[in-house]
């Protein structure tokens, strides 16, 4: 294993019992990460970009339907299938275990997206557009992605960097910060005292598509009947 190993290992826990499917995390992510706002035609094609999305699964027969919400974002896999297939190292593992995407390296083969079992990678089919006046509220810490590059959830790496540089406590990605039900918890998996580490040890904790051996750093706390 090459490169230096950092003290942090960022992870997330999402309590599906608490998630109401309100999509506040989706809106917060859009604002924080300068996600383009698709027009209706492009959205209908399936080109809307949501680094975090809330998948809905229905159980039972009408009228006894139970809806399961599951916020899906990049799982920041330890053994990410997207990484080895990139010919230009645009996606790779950074020293803190984050699966990062370097926009300037990306040539747009889209192989990583095909190889992502969680379908959380998004492509810039055109140069991004924002309806007036949304272009005025861009986050200066996050770059705007040009046409032809891949992008995905970064665990709000700009906030992580800022926290590390300025020593701010209470570090949270935008989705976690905005969750009204407090279903999401972010923290350092290397710190056994952190809430996320404890939740990851919880008996309800599972990893999504665990059987693929991708070793995600996002833990879902399953719903109890």
């Amino acid at each position: 294993m090459g490169g230096k190993v950092s003290e942090h290992r960022w992870g997330m826990a999402i309590d599906l019992d608490r998630c109401t499917g309100c999509q506040a995390c989706v809106a917060a992510c859009h604002a924080e990460n300068n996600l383009p706002v698709s027009n209706p035609e492009q959205a209908a094609l399936g080109r809307a970009v949501h680094w975090i999305r809330v998948d809905r699964y229905y159980e039972g027969e009408f009228p006894n339907i139970r809806v399961k919400h599951r916020p899906v974002l990049c799982q920041q896999c330890d053994e990410a299938p997207c990484e080895p297939v990139c010919p230009v190292y645009a996606t790779y593992k950074n020293p803190e275990g984050l699966n990062v995407q370097v926009y300037n390296r990306c040539v747009g083969t889209r192989y990583c997206a095909n190889n992502c079992p969680y379908s959380v990678r998004f492509f810039n089919w055109f140069d991004p557009e924002w309806p007036e006046p949304l272009q005025l509220q861009h986050n200066p810490d996050v770059s705007i992605r040009e046409s032809g590059v891949m992008e995905k959830c970064t665990f709000c790496i700009q906030r992580i960097k800022r926290a590390e540089e300025e020593g701010a406590n209470n570090l949270q990605p935008a989705c976690v910060q905005s969750c009204p039900a407090e279903a999401m918890v972010f923290g350092d998996l290397n710190d056994p005292e952190s809430k996320v580490s404890q939740l990851a040890e919880n008996s309800r904790a599972t990893q999504f598509l665990e059987e693929l051996g991708t070793k995600p750093k996002v833990f879902y706390l399953e719903r109890v009947k």
Partner: peptide, 18 residues
Amino acid sequence: QYNYPLVTGGMPLFSFWS
């Protein structure tokens, strides 16, 4: 591969088979 060593998350920098 060693000239620009990237953290590969547990995978070897140089992999003969792949």
